[in-house]
Design a binder for these strands. Sequence first.
DNA 1: GCGCATATATGCGCAGCGCACATATATTTG
DNA 2: CAAATATATGTGCGCTGCGCATATATGCGC
Lengths: 169, 169
Amino acid sequence: MDTEIANLLGALSLAVMDRIEQGAREVIGRGGETPAALIVIGYGEGMTNEKLRRILGLSHSGTVRLVDRLVSDQLVERRPGDDAREVALHLTPRGAAARKELMASRISAVASLLNVLSPAETKRLGTLIRDVLMRQDTSEMDRFTICRMCDDRVCTRCPLPTAKGKRGR
Amino acid sequence: MDTEIANLLGALSLAVMDRIEQGAREVIGRGGETPAALIVIGYGEGMTNEKLRRILGLSHSGTVRLVDRLVSDQLVERRPGDDAREVALHLTPRGAAARKELMASRISAVASLLNVLSPAETKRLGTLIRDVLMRQDTSEMDRFTICRMCDDRVCTRCPLPTAKGKRGR
DNA sequence: GCGCATATATGCGCAGCGCACATATATTTG
DNA sequence: CAAATATATGTGCGCTGCGCATATATGCGC
């Protein structure tokens, strides 16, 4: 049955995200969309509050307060944007370091679940996951949303259609 | 690279959980571990607060307040347990209906991502996911935790070692 | 300049959760 | 059997994460 496989993927995804979120909380001491925000801000220089908001799927105020937390944790700083209405978000050195640690923690959390497969099985699984992602009908923003925790040092060929999922534009 | 595949699984898992959580919030108007709690309570009659706490990975008080919410939403009722210290949690008719809707929403959310694969590909993916889960080194409680959103009408042969993952015991 | 859209910030409140503590019932031990 | 201990639940309090409504500042078209 197809639903049985959907159920299995749901269970695996839950296990994966549990581990990712736990690791993220250990690294930066924050939960919710805060770790994703740190990663997204690092994709490009000068991410704005508004773009971040759309990628994370939060409200305006929620995003402002999230950035407040990142600023007070000295991981991010607000600089004036080219457009004087905008705030350009930049990682501090501490923020860049935390971001790297965050992504490493995420990869290692997933890998620890995955390393029970043989290399051949892993490769087959990778191909299938790539196919699933490649064939999704995603808007530009959807792609950034799905990729909001992705490790851009590792994801050199993002399968999502028509974008690399790497730039904060 | 192995880490590349880990990254892809992380991205897919995030997409899957985003959709599951959004659907759950639409069905019962609550987030966090509340939907999982409703599903877990439905696995068996007389789930206790303490067992629930361990499965969901929450604190005592967090669990009590979570159950308070379910009770005030008239989805769950507290009955005296066999052991007079325990509270036996039971779904109300409304709770059982919400639970079914919750699980259906979850399956359909995952299936909508998965239906881009051919039947043969889907089957291969199912086999690989089953292998990943089957080979995990999980404690008894880990299994309930991983299965805390599983649809017991669909998951007739849970791959997790040494248990069916179906009973609330 | 004026009206409107865009981007950010703030006041306020709620959901979800943990810590510390209190209470009630079982279980073990002397 | 009584006392100490373990187990299960409930409560006061506060924090994090977030949304709604509103206010302010800047850009853009006319």
